[in-house]
Design a protein around this nucleic acid. Structure first.
Length: 123
DNA sequence: GTGTTGACCCCAA
DNA sequence: TTTGGGGCCAACA
């Protein structure tokens, strides 16, 4: 996204040049209730398909974000709840998802292909 | 400065 | 089918 570096409107520049984490949070917050997406899909949507690890790092940091990021709606490409250890209890991530109507067995989202939400469809 | 570690993913064998 | 290795890069030690 382009912006004029000589612009005297720094606030505008700040909004346009969001850092990577903010872009990740923005996409994650778009995930509808009852749907999930993957780290890789988010990376791809941001044009850095090979940097999916960074999306995971962003989720680790998301707890310190002022925004309310529904990080539990992001799983790995197999529909596995690989981020559950970062919650207060090892069952909290699963409980949040089940509250939204998803079924989780053994850290695996059931009917993952149905619950999958592709951020590319929203851009 | 260097080295290691990940909420990852892809592909070759 | 299951592995192993490479790429990736911010965060930490």
């Amino acid at each position: 996204m382009n912006y004029n570096v000589t612009s005297n409107e720094p606030v505008f520049c700040f909004i346009m040049e969001k850092d990577f984490y903010s872009q990740v949070y923005e996409i994650v917050s778009l995930i509808p209730k009852g749907k999930v997406t993957t780290y890789g899909a988010i990376a791809k949507a941001l044009g850095v398909a090979r940097s999916s690890r960074l999306v995971g790092t962003a989720m680790v940091n998301s707890h310190s974000s002022k925004l309310n990021v529904p990080a539990h709606r992001v799983v790995n490409r197999n529909g596995l709840l690989t981020g559950k250890h970062h919650y207060e209890t090892s069952t909290q991530m699963m409980e949040l998802l089940e509250q939204e109507g998803l079924k989780v067995i053994n850290d695996q989202i059931q009917d993952f292909h149905k619950a999958f939400w592709d951020p590319l469809n929203e851009i």
